[in-house]
Design a protein around this nucleic acid. Sequence first.
DNA 1: TTGTAAGCGTTATCAT
DNA 2: ATGATAACGCTTACAA
Lengths: 335, 335
Amino acid sequence: MKTTPMRPSMPAPRIADVAELAGVSMSTASKALNDTGQLREDTRARVKDAAAQLGFVVGASGRGGADTRTYTVGLLTTDSFGRFTIPLLMGVEDALAAGKMAIILCDTRDDVLREQHYLQSLQERRVDGLIITGRTTDPRPSIGLPIPTVYAFSPSEDPDDYAVVADEGAGATMAAEHLVAMGSRRIAHVTGPQRHHSADARALAVHETLGDALVAPTLFGHWSEEWGRAAVDMLLASHPDLDGLVCGSDQIARGATDRLREKGVDVPGQVRVTGFDNWEVMALASRPPLTTVDMGLTELGRLAGRTLLDLVEGKPDVPHQQVLTPRLEVRASSL
Amino acid sequence: MKTTPMRPSMPAPRIADVAELAGVSMSTASKALNDTGQLREDTRARVKDAAAQLGFVVGASGRGGADTRTYTVGLLTTDSFGRFTIPLLMGVEDALAAGKMAIILCDTRDDVLREQHYLQSLQERRVDGLIITGRTTDPRPSIGLPIPTVYAFSPSEDPDDYAVVADEGAGATMAAEHLVAMGSRRIAHVTGPQRHHSADARALAVHETLGDALVAPTLFGHWSEEWGRAAVDMLLASHPDLDGLVCGSDQIARGATDRLREKGVDVPGQVRVTGFDNWEVMALASRPPLTTVDMGLTELGRLAGRTLLDLVEGKPDVPHQQVLTPRLEVRASSL
DNA sequence: TTGTAAGCGTTATCAT
DNA sequence: ATGATAACGCTTACAA
C-alpha cells in the first residue's frame, strides 16, 4: 500500500489542503500532525488520515524565519571525495544524523572560484554550520565566515578556527616503535613528496624515534606502488642487511612488499614492513597483509560532526584544536 | 579585506538591518540587492555598501512558499560513497551546479529504516528531485514518491521510473572482441558472484561473443585479487594453452596478472588480459597496466543530473530508460 | 524614485 | 476542543 505516485508536476499538498479535506482549520491540522495542543483523538486521527491520503509531508520552508536553524550543514572538500574524504564523511554523517542534520556536498576540486561560489550558495541556504576538509594535512587558508566552522583532517592556518586532526607524527612513531619491538634494528623510511606536510611530519617522527636504527636518510618520492618498488631496489643495493621498512603509505608499502618478494626477500622473515592509512583494498590485498597506521578518519569525522553540533548549539568551551591519536593495525607484514 | 568573522552566535543580518543602515525601506533594499526595479544608482550603491558592511546574504528561507523550488536535490545511495558512487557523484555535481542546485547526501548503508528516514527528511526539505544510486546494477525497489526521481547505475524495478544505466553486456563484449581482434583464440572468463546481476550479464555477453573461443565455463567467484590468483591457478592446470583472459573486475584482473607473471607466463605475450571498471588505482598499478572497460560513470552521473533537471523543469518527452555504452581503455595488458 | 502592503506555508499564542 | 490571527524574512504588485 504505497503512497500514490502522482505526476511529479502536481504541486505538493499544503497543510491547508489537509485541513480542508479533514474539515478543520489549518491550526487544528497543524496541532494534529505535530501531536501538540489539546485535540480529540478522533479529530487527530481524521487529520492524519487526510494527510496520509494526500501524501502530505510538513515542509520546512513554512517555518520561514520563525525557526532560525535550517538543520543543514555544508561539507566543503578539495578532495573530490576521494580516499580520505569518504571515511571522514561517514563519520560526519553518523554524528549529524543524530542531530537530524542534512549534509550539502560541495566539491571545490581545488578551484578557488568554485569554492567562493559554493560558500555563497551555502550562506544563501543559511546552513547552520560548515565542515571543511581536503586531501592533504597541509594547513589551508581560513574560510573566515560568520558561521560555525570545523576543519577536519586538513587544519586551517588560523589558530582561532576549530580543527580536528590526526596526529601523524604519533602514527609514524607507532609504526617505527613496533618494528623495533619486533626486533628490527636496520630500518629505512620510504615516503611521499617532501613538500607534503604529511611526508615531512612523519619523516621527522620516524627519525626521532629510530635514531641509529635508521640506516639511511628518508627516501622521499611519490605515494605510489611504483615508487615503493624502486625504493626497495635502491635500498637493497646499498643496505642488503635491511631488516625493517617504514612506509609512508599503503601503496608504497604494497609496492615495496611486492618487490621484496620478487627479489626473494621474505616479509616479514627478513624484512618487516609497515604501511600507513589502512586503506583496506591495498593493505589486505598485499602479500602478506600490511601492518599499517589507521588514522581513524571515521572517528575524526564523528568528532568533527559532534564538535560542529556543539558550536551550533552554542555550547561553551568547545576546544579549538582536537588531535586524535592513530591506531596501529597489526597484520602479518611485521610479525 | 575579508568579511569580519563575527562571533558565530550572532544572528545573521536580515534585510531589515540592511535597509535601516542604508536609510531606506525593506522593499527598496530588496530591489537594490536584486538589481530589479527603478532605483537611483547611488541608492543602489548605498544599499549594497550597507549589505557588504553587515556581511548580508539573502536567505532562501525568505522566499517562503512563494518560490516553489528549493534548488536542492537529494542523492540517495546504498554504496556508502564507495568506488562507484564517487565518479557518478562528480558527474551529477557537474550537471546540477549548472542549474544552481545543491546536493544533499544520504547514505542508507543498505538499511531500509535509514532509507525511510532519509526520504522523510528529503520530503520535509521539499527537494526538487531525487537521484538514487547504489553499489550494484541489480534492480532495486522503486522509491515511489511524487518527486522527480532518476535512478543512476542501479535501475528501479519499475519500468515507469527514469533510469540511466551502463550497458554492461556491451562492455564485456568489447573486451572479448578486443582479445579476439588481438589474436587470442583460447579464452577464459573469470568474474564475481553469479548472484550479482553484473557478473551474470557480463558472463552472458562474453559467452555469446566468444562461442568456441571460450575454453571453459565462466568461473564465478569474488571481486577480489585473491580470486583472480586462484582462478589463474585452476585455469593453467586445466588449460595450459590459454591465450586470453576476460576478467569481471580490475581487482580480479590484477590478481590474475600477478599470478601469471609469478608463474612465468608473459602478459600480454602469452596471455592477453582485460579488466573491468577502469579503477585507476588498480588498472594503472598492475604490471602491465590493464586494458579495461570504462563504464563512464562520471558521464552517467552527468546524464542523470541533466535528466533530473529536465524532469524538474517539466520538459516533455524525457526518455525513461537511457543506456550508456562503455568505452574500452586499451593498455599494455592486451597488446 | 520610493514606500506600503499582500502573500508565501507553517507554528505559536490567544480567544472562543 | 477548536479556530482566528500574528509572526517569520523576503519578494513583488501597486500606490504615492
